[in-house]
Computed example of a mutant assay.
Amino acid sequence: MSEIVVSERMKQILIVVPLLSSALAVFFDVGYFYALDVNLFTVFSLAEHINFALEALPLALGGIFFAAVGVVLTSRLLHAEDKSKERIRTAGRAPSWKDRWPLLVQPAVIGILALNTWLRPGLVNYVMLGSLISGAILLWIIPSGGSRLTFMTMGTGSLLFALSFALGYDIATGYAANAPYRHTIKIGLLELKAKVVRSGEKGLLFHDEASKQLLFLPWSDIKRVSYK
């Protein structure tokens, strides 16, 4: 009987994980274009966006794995917190560090993440910090039991999509601000120094060094694209 249950769960995992990974990867590409110009999203087809999103697929799979680990660790930490509170409540002595340490983990993590956000501002860090603070408050309000696990599971799923969007946004803004212009695009007798953003069936999306603008050119106007 247990083997049948395990088999059914494996089937569910094999169906859910690829679908969830693909959805997260698409959210990454939406965030990427939102940072550039969301109106340019429709220049490329859905199939092209899915293809673009494949670059984020390893990150999505890693995010799902770490999210699952995070839910398990958080569940155990909350259980330790509940036991610690019970020991402090029933102890006939002053609470020791052994009693108090589970209560200090969340404030410590929030403090470290707040410092990292201040030193390295970015949408990903803001999303992480905001979700951790709001999650800590809600978990403090929600009583112990199955409702906590349900909240953590739903909250983690929502956080994954928000982080995928934020990661795409941060990568696009970082690429636009810091990446060197390594492409040369020849248009007639003119050569443009550029950094290519996306290449699709209709044409090429790129940052132009001279005008500092984001441009899209159809392939019929482009003679050559070189990289160095």
Rank of each mutant, 00 (worst) to 15 (best):
L159M: 06
M1Q: 12
L159K: 01
K85E: 04
A176R: 15
L19I: 15
S75M: 08
G174C: 05
E191R: 09
N116L: 15
G122V: 10
L113I: 15
E209C: 06
L215R: 12
Q213N: 12
F216N: 03
V30R: 02
I110K: 01
W140L: 08
P58T: 05
R120H: 11
A179W: 11
P95Q: 06
I4N: 08
G146W: 13
N125H: 12
G155S: 05
L73D: 00
F44V: 10
D208Q: 11
L73W: 08
P102T: 01
Y227D: 02
E201I: 14
S45M: 08
P143Q: 07
T117C: 09
Y227I: 00
A108I: 14
P121V: 03
L204P: 00
W219T: 04
V105H: 03
A108M: 10
L19E: 07
L78Q: 13
F65G: 04
L205P: 06
M152W: 04
W97G: 04
K202F: 08
F52V: 02
A35Q: 07
A179R: 13
L103M: 09
F206T: 00
A94V: 14
A172T: 05
K186L: 01
A176W: 14
H207L: 15
L160A: 13
Y169I: 00
G188M: 00
L46K: 07
R198K: 13
R89V: 00
F27L: 13
L36Y: 07
L119W: 13
N39M: 04
P58A: 07
M10A: 12
L129V: 09
K223H: 03
R89E: 10
M152R: 15
R9L: 15
A179P: 07
L214Q: 07
K186Y: 00
A25K: 04
P121Q: 06
Y126A: 09
F44N: 07
N178C: 02
T150E: 07
L123Q: 01
P143A: 06
K195V: 05
S134W: 13
I13Y: 12
L61V: 07
T184R: 14
